[in-house]
């Protein structure tokens, strides 16, 4: 199970570690469901390079392909990004929050007791 998650996340990080692939994702974010031709028109890359990058993005499940007749449409799929944010960043954030609340508890224990507010005042 651990190897399975690592494999999925490796594919996503590898896909994101390239400027051209991020540009492709940005392009789909602007306008979802583009064909290869449409994507090529917006990017300064050869058709072969775009095809290669799209295959890697598909393998990482960051891009989903839908066929409409003979047209192959590419869609941005943000689900794996959300999984990473929840499983990784969320996990570290929780630890940091726990550390902070521990620090707060420790500091408050050493604090001289506050004066009770004067009800009459």
């Amino acid at each position: 199970m651990v190897a399975y998650y690592r494999g999925q996340m490796d594919a996503v990080f590898k896909a994101l570690a390239d400027e051209s692939r991020r540009a492709l994702l940005d392009q789909l974010h602007k306008c979802n469901g583009q064909t290869l031709g449409e994507l090529c028109a917006h990017l300064d890359m050869t058709r072969q390079a775009v095809t290669k990058h799209l295959l890697l993005l598909e393998a990482a499940n960051l891009v989903v392909v839908v066929w409409r007749g003979r047209e192959k449409l590419h869609y941005l799929n943000p689900v794996p990004l959300h999984e990473i944010s929840e499983r990784w960043i969320g996990k570290y954030e929780r630890h940091r929050l726990q550390a902070l609340s521990g620090l707060k508890a420790g500091l408050e224990q050493n604090q001289p007791k506050k004066k009770q507010p004067n009800k009459k005042g």
């Binding site: 199970m1 399975y4 999925q8 979802n32 469901g33 499940n61 989903v64 839908v66 409409r68 007749g69 449409l73 869609y75 799929n77 943000p78 689900v79 794996p80 999984e83």
Partner: peptide, 14 residues
Amino acid sequence: MAKPMLVYTTYIRS
């Protein structure tokens, strides 16, 4: 046929 607007997939061990 109009373009579908939102498409999401996830792979699940199930």
